[in-house]
Design a protein around this nucleic acid. Structure first.
Length: 746
RNA sequence: GGGGGUGUGGCGGAACUGGCAGACGCGCUAGAUUUAGGAUCUAGUGUCCUUUGGACGUGCAGGUUCGAUUCCUGUCACCCCCA
């Protein structure tokens, strides 16, 4: 593999880093996701410091010049500028490191080191940023032969090149403080560079001070300054401020903010993607001779010609040596001439042939959905005002840092350009949990097919199962019927000394535990599938699939069906009923008191549970309703109609069907949501437990709202309580009306 | 290594601001009905003990409280993400 620099389109998301971080505050998102975004943006405050690399004898002059001129916005060529989050460790900076791509590498390298440096730079170019930052691989680097001057103490420090420093972070150069940075430490050990500790850990840090002083260990925490001349004894936080200020007045440093967030590479060398509406002007003379040469001028495609559509095409591969200076040309470079070289006002242009990534759609689809047919603007401001922001966004946590950050960025750009009235697109965010495969039992066998208890199974570096001595083990899938519970684990039925793993795995083709929704719809129906997914457990939690559980909700829907429809004894469960007739139990009379109460309790619970996105408990309450009304010989139509409205968002098909069976003319979709009357949900009497020393000993049936005093009297009069309290002193009585009575007695 | 999350019956899970642990469903057991049922209905189903009854019980160990699944401290295990 070879890494080649390509000319690409970037979006300057870094310009929005600050706002993308700050505005998170206003959002109703989980702290976990907010933290992920904050960390991704990676705002840090520290200082930029210039190290002099000019001739040694000129250091004093440079310094006096700087104290007069102050810290320049851009570094001059006689300095190396570094960014550090720990300016307080400046006295411990014993070397500097440049990224291999740093612009100063060539000029700094001495003749003796030249070939070594060139070799190293070439090797680093072949590695990805990811590999370079991998902690597991050994640090590598090469000395340039040059030195820089540490501005705080005028000591010369060697300048190295190493690929653990990335050109894209900070200034592409660092001051290395091996005593207080783990990567610098590792590197210094490897190349035998001085290690000078300058931070004394506080007493509660468990650090061996002697080893630290000897340069044998590294301490990355905060503490107080040592070996830092006049700053000795200053606490880290205070030191940071002081030294930054001091560097500032010397003109060699300045407070700086840095972000881990990089600008966003936004072009792809693919056919399928939105074309950039950009035209490159061609040298007209050359073009007339059949040659393509750019003048360097670009213009955007006129509004009236938008959107740029992809040309008809049959070659979708990236081509090598496509000409026009592109060593690797995107497919669109091979589009027909008419598309590729439009002429405007007598000037011929070449279209941009990179295309946009998928994000180009996902970053603003929610805006277009508001007004999808508008051919004047991408969204009517009135409609935007009415609909935005998105009230509730339910999505997977895998979008935490990419999609959700990118979309926020676009939204802010559009806001700044005056196209939107909202600063943030997604007000509330909920991450739904993943549905895992069915629970599996796994046992382990050694080479002789003997079972090995899962307690004795270890994992090698690739997480493969091995024995303690390192022998490879084979995982064996076990039939649930062959496993049983024993204490906290599952064991084999045939040998209870062998424990087995039990867990649900992410659905994957390779594991073969994928459940296809279409198949479930086929066997159980779409309503059952939808209802089951909502019934499985809390929305945000990962939970294992269970096909048996689908039958459970299907049974519920069947019971609901029979609440309304006369049972057909000949009908098979999975076949359509021949004749659908209203059940004789359905009556047109008003509900009795208990039926009214159950209805209103159900409306209340379901309504509130939906608000909380607690769909599993909402469904449980509807099951209770169905169980209750199944037992009712007379089922008032009114109750059933209201119930069907509650059910309709969960199981729309059956609800609509039964709505019609009940004799309603129109669809239930336009019916108002049922309302409950709080007064009708309350039962007149309530059972109150009586505890003695915190143990329940009796239960009282009393009118709701019985006062504290009355409740205590009633409790004390209870036969059982009297008997148990005989000969004891009541030390304390706790009475919570409608809840409980507790006697503390000895 | 860093960050986030989760631990409650055989299983998925309930439990409002600390107040009857196990709602609801699956599974299991028994009964009714049925030519039959993997259909339906009814009842039971945390564990242990000698029963009427009692003891124990929300990963583990402590603490606060009349009272803790819930609050606090410590600890263990697992999952996810990042490195």
């Amino acid at each position: 593999m070879v890494r080649k620099p390509l000319r690409q389109w970037m979006l300057r998301i870094t310009a929005y880093a600050d706002r993308l971080e700050k505005d998170l505050e206003s959002l109703d998102w989980s702290e976990g996701i907010k933290k992920l975004q904050r960390d991704w943006i990676g705002r840090s405050t520290g200082a930029e410091v210039d190290f002099y690399i000019g001739a040694k004898e000129n250091v004093a002059t440079w310094k006096s010049d700087r104290s007069a001129s102050g810290f320049p916005r851009k570094p001059d060529s006689d300095v190396l500028r570094v960014y550090t989050t720990r300016p307080d460790t400046l006295f411990g900076a014993t070397y500097m490191v440049l990224a291999p791509e740093h612009a100063a590498v060539e000029s700094l390298t001495t003749d003796e080191q030249k070939s070594a440096v060139e070799d190293y730079v070439a090797k680093a170019a072949a590695k990805s940023d990811r590999d370079r930052q991998d902690d597991k691989t050994k640090k590598s680097g090469v000395f340039t032969g040059a030195y820089a001057i540490n501005p705080i103490n005028d000591k010369p420090v060697p300048i190295w090149i190493a690929d653990y420093v990335l050109a894209s972070y900070g200034t592409g150069a660092i001051m290395a403080v091996p005593a207080h940075d783990t990567r610098d430490f590792e590197f210094a050990k490897q190349y035998d560079i001085d290690i000078v500790p300058v931070v004394q850990p506080t007493d509660n840090d468990d650090i061996d001070l002697e080893k630290l002083a000897a340069g044998e260990i590294c301490f990355a925490g905060m503490g107080t300054a040592i070996n830092s001349e006049q700053y000795d004894g200053t606490p880290t936080a205070e030191f940071k401020q002081k030294i930054t200020q001091s560097l500032g007045s010397m003109g060699v440093g300045s407070e700086a903010v840095n972000y881990k967030l990089r600008d966003w590479l936004f072009s792809r060398q693919r056919f399928w993607g939105e074309p950039f509406p950009i035209l490159h002007e061609l040298n007209q003379e050359q073009y007339s001779k059949g040659a393509v040469e750019f003048t360097g001028k670009v213009r955007t495609v006129a509004d009236k010609d938008l959107p740029v559509e992809l040309p008809k095409f049959d070659n979708f591969n990236v081509q090598e040596d496509a000409g026009a200076g592109n060593e690797y040309a995107p497919p669109l470079d091979f589009a027909d001439e008419q598309w590729l070289y439009p002429e405007i006002d007598g000037v011929v242009y070449k279209r941009e042939t990179n295309t946009m990534p998928q994000w180009a759609g996902s970053c603003w689809y929610y805006l277009r959905f508001i007004d999808p047919k508008n051919d004047k603007v991408f969204v009517d401001p009135e409609l935007e005002k009415q609909w935005m922001p998105v009230d509730l966004y339910i999505g997977g946590a895998e979008h935490a840092v990419l999609h959700l950050l990118y979309a926020r960025f676009w939204h802010k750009v559009l806001f700044d350009r005056g196209h939107l009235q909202t600063k943030e697109p997604f007000q509330k965010l909920v991450n739904q949990g993943m549905i895992l495969g069915d629970i599996e039992f796994t046992g382990y066998q050694d080479g002789n097919s003997n079972w090995v208890s899962s307690n004795d199974v270890h994992r090698d570096e690739e997480r493969q199962p091995i024995t303690k001595s390192g022998e490879a083990l084979t995982p064996v899938k076990i039939d649930p019927d062959d496993a049983q519970k024993s204490g906290n684990t599952f064991v084999l039925k045939e040998d209870s000394s062998i424990s087995v793993d039990s867990r649900a795995y992410k659905m994957s083709k390779s594991r073969g535990n994928v459940v296809t929704p279409d198949n479930v719809v086929e066997t159980h129906g779409a309503d059952s599938l939808r209802l089951y997914e909502m019934f499985m457990g809390p929305l945000e939690q990962a939970k294992p699939w269970s096909t048996a559980g689908v039958s459970g909700v299907r049974n519920f829907l069947d019971r609901v069906w029979r609440l309304v429809v006369e049972g057909d004894k000949d009908a098979d469960k999975n076949e359509a009923q021949n004749e659908i007739t209203l059940s004789s139990a359905v009556v047109d009379t008003p509900p009795n008191e208990e039926q009214t109460r159950v209805l209103h309790q159900t409306i209340k619970a379901v309504t509130q549970d939906i608000e909380k996105l607690s769909f599993n408990t909402a469904i449980a309450r509807m099951m209770e309703f169905a169980n209750f009304f199944t037992k009712q010989k007379q089922r008032p139509k009114e109750c059933l109609s209201q119930f069907l409205l509650l059910l309709s968002p969960f199981a729309p098909h059956i609800a609509e069907e039964l709505w019609s069976v009940l004799g309603n003319e129109n669809t239930l979709a336009y019916e108002p949501w049922p309302e409950f009357d709080e007064a009708l949900t309350i039962e007149s009497s309530v059972e109150v437990p009586v505890q003695i020393m915190g143990k329940i000993k009796a239960r009282l049936n009393v009118p709701r709202g019985t006062s504290k005093d009355d409740l205590e009297k009633i409790a004390l009069a209870d036969e059982k309580v009297v008997e148990l309290l005989k000969g004891k002193n009541i030390m304390k009585t706790v009475v919570v009306p409608d809840r409980l009575v507790n006697f503390v007695a000895k």
